[in-house]
């Protein structure tokens, strides 16, 4: 459980994961969660939306599910990305561990943390990222943020 995951770990997650389930994603196109879902989709990830208020609707080509346990078993979710208040994290983590035996990562967005739930997930061999945004990390690690003058922390003399 770490709030400062290594660059190598983040890179590994973002180059090997294929399917994200975004819990608490908004249908409103100017909400940050919607931005992230759309962005991950643009980058080639499959993004499964989870939001009980909009179950059955479609977001960026995928059906919205009311909760993680409603996601069909044939959708191999690698990363559960949590856009909910920290208090909601334990319930979501329990569902995630229950539903996806092969889950690789539980990712909590900026401002979202839960040490105890994180420890439970890690005990099951799931990597936990807290208080981070996969969109920002993707943009940082793969060069996009350089274009905006952000401090990517990347030093390299290789092409």
């Amino acid at each position: 459980m770490t709030e400062t995951p290594s660059e190598a770990l983040l890179r590994h997650i973002l180059t090997t994961a294929k399917v994200f389930a975004c819990v608490g994603v908004s249908m409103n196109p100017v909400r940050p969660s919607n931005y992230v879902a759309r962005y991950l989709g643009l980058k080639g990830f499959r993004v499964i939306p989870v939001n009980p208020g909009h179950a059955g609707e479609t977001l960026y080509g995928e059906t919205v599910y009311p909760e993680l346990s409603a996601i069909p078993a044939d959708i191999p979710v690698d990363v559960v990305d949590i856009f909910r208040r920290s208090e909601a994290v334990p319930g979501i983590v329990d569902q995630a561990l229950d539903r996806f035996p092969d889950l690789k990562v539980i990712w909590m967005q900026i401002g979202v943390r839960h040490a105890e739930a994180a420890a439970r997930a890690e005990a099951r061999g799931v990597t936990v990222i807290q208080n981070r945004c996969p969109k920002i990390e993707y943009q940082r690690l793969f060069g996009e943020l350089r274009m905006g003058g952000f401090n990517t922390g990347i030093i390299s003399s290789r092409l």
Binding site: M147, G148, G149, F150, N151
Partner: peptide
């Protein structure tokens, strides 16, 4: 300009620079 912005952000220990 972006290269300079990133360099300034890094030197000052900030997140970004304009």
């Amino acid at each position: 300009v972006a290269a300079l912005q990133e360099r300034m952000a890094a030197l000052e220990g900030g997140q970004g620079a304009v």
